[in-house]
Design a protein around this nucleic acid. Structure first.
Lengths: 193, 193
DNA sequence: GCGATTCTGGACTTGCGGGTCCAAAATCTG
DNA sequence: CAGATTTTGGACCCGCAAGTCCAGAATCGC
């Protein structure tokens, strides 16, 4: 009934193969045949481990990528307790997306599986992300480095949206300039300058 | 050699039919057959007016939608000369995207024609958009309502990215809350509050 | 009016890609 | 070792959607 160790490994290989492929090639459709070739598996295996077919597989990949997004921002994102920490986080975010280039795996995924389930994965990621930022802002308020009148929830939402926007613009222009401008502007807003 | 008046009309009907369809149904693939049915035309006509096939057609639709984006923000976007005007613009943007709902025609288009040409259309739109915002900021600086030290170009970039991000988040959450939060935060940044 | 050109309709071809199926190989269980 | 179960490979099916083609209708230019 369960999955053998070997089975687990294969399943993981499929997910990571697909994941890596999305990073490499820009957006555009992914086909099961490509995933099969990259992960060195066969059609039979794909449907064996993901009975729901392509959708289930891509959803698994989305969760995998989703986890990476937040992990890549640690430890900065978890300890936004000084202006220097905010700057380090800013730099980490910019570096991450600059390295990723034009392709945005999660966006590519989203456009290929437009189901409520996929939306939920993204919504959950954004929510967690925002919660971290919010905690950081409230921390700064508690220590008197940010004015208490500022609405932390609203500002955190602006950060999340701003980053998403920066990445979206990057997909067209290829540059992280907008991402940087947005982060700097919002940090400036926090500082009240 | 040229296009007859009737020809022009048919061509336009195809573009507008496709455009309307994208607004109605959320994202997901558009097929030539659907476009054909909606616009009351035939395969022959589509390839007659768009020899480049689907790609050429969708690119034309993208330009059409692109023009609408900026048009919908006028006259506000062209005259950001007072804080009241900025608020009216903000409200117009929010209203526009709230009306549009989860579906984002341009984004749907982009994910279906991942060519340099499509990127160029988007890049051009963003550039014009940013230029308008920048002009508004500089106007406010000239009249002493915004501190002169602020980098107008960078702030305008933040606005463009922020709006894009707000719309992207809206695609997952269905709410314009993030869009509003970002616009408010950035306007707050301009005001220096 | 009457050739030339443009417009229109739809049947047809083609390739691609998701999904099915089954038999053989490997692995587990006792 | 023997039988059950899981894993693997790949041939095959099927539908969909882009693109082709051509013949007939409408329209234009003179």
């Amino acid at each position: 009934m369960g999955l053998t160790a070997k089975g687990q490994a294969t399943r993981q290989r499929i997910i990571e193969g697909a994941s890596g492929y999305l990073l490499g090639c820009g957006d555009g459709e992914v086909t099961l045949d490509e995933i099969r070739a990259i992960s060195g598996t066969s059609k039979g295996q794909i449907f064996h481990y993901f009975p729901g077919g392509k959708e289930e597989l891509l959803l698994a990949v989305a969760e995998h990528e989703s986890a990476r997004v937040l992990a890549d921002q640690q430890p900065h994102l978890g300890a936004l307790t000084s202006w220097a920490a905010w700057e380090r986080w800013r730099d980490a975010v910019v570096a991450r997306y600059r390295a990723q280039g034009r392709s945005c795996p999660l966006n590519a995924l989203m456009s290929q599986v437009a189901t409520p389930g996929a939306e939920a994965v993204i919504a959950r990621l954004l929510h967690q992300w925002q919660a971290h930022v919010r905690a950081g802002i409230e921390d700064m308020q508690a220590s008197g480095q940010v004015r208490p009148a500022l609405d932390a929830g609203q500002a955190a939402a602006a950060f999340v949206a701003g980053i998403q926007g920066g990445v979206v613009v990057q997909r067209s222009t290829g540059s992280t300039a907008h991402l940087e401008a947005t982060l700097d502007a919002l940090i400036g807003y926090l500082r009240g300058s």
